[in-house]
């Protein structure tokens, strides 16, 4: 009885000591996860995820309080990148691939109130007081804030127009396959 207890205790102490030494030598410093996640996020502070900005979203992600699919402008690519960094797997088939949109000003209704200009985080709207505003499509990231504040509903979100510069071949129709 005593030998049994003794030898088990001895084994436990031995392994415990060895593991303790090992953990000292193999210590890993935690990466600044939050900063890395924030760098991945678009940084346009659009707030579509429900958090105040990208930094807040990053800390929620790091704390495991948000899903990697939280960012609509980032789409599937970002969700996959976030999931990989977090070491979790996500089902991307559910995430709707949002068609990228840009703001469009209906020039007949715009009254030149300048409210949208103040709300645009990337200065994509230009125009003066009482002058019709216009959108620089190239830097509009489609957050839709301007459309919400426009008092005359002159701004709507439209899909990015297809031009000769961004057109590409569509995927072959799978129904055409195997028949």
């Amino acid at each position: 009885m005593l030998t049994a207890v003794g030898s088990l205790a001895m084994l436990g102490v031995t392994f415990g000591t060895l593991l303790g030494i090992a953990s000292r030598y193999l210590r890993v410093d935690e990466n600044p996860l939050e900063a890395e996640l924030e760098a991945l996020l678009p940084g346009s502070q659009c707030g579509q995820c429900g958090f105040a900005g990208c930094k807040q979203a990053a800390s929620a992600l790091a704390a495991g309080q948000a899903k990697p699919t939280l960012c609509p402008p980032g789409g599937r690519a970002l969700a996959a990148a976030l999931a990989e960094r977090l070491g979790v797997s996500v089902d991307l088939s559910d995430t709707e691939e949002l068609e990228p949109e840009v703001a469009f000003v209906n020039e007949d209704i715009c009254i030149g109130c300048m409210r949208c200009l103040q709300d645009c985080s990337s200065d994509a709207l230009v125009g003066g007081p009482k002058q019709i505003h216009t959108v620089i499509t190239d830097i509009c990231h489609g957050c839709g804030k301007c459309a919400k504040v426009c008092p005359t509903e002159a701004i709507e979100m439209r899909p990015v127009p297809i031009t000769l510069a961004n057109w590409h071949w569509h995927k072959p129709d799978p129904r055409q396959y195997m028949n």
Partner: peptide, 9 residues
């Protein structure tokens, strides 16, 4: 604008 095209080369 949706563009429908057939098969590519």
């Amino acid at each position: 604008m949706t563009v429908t095209v057939g098969l590519s080369a």
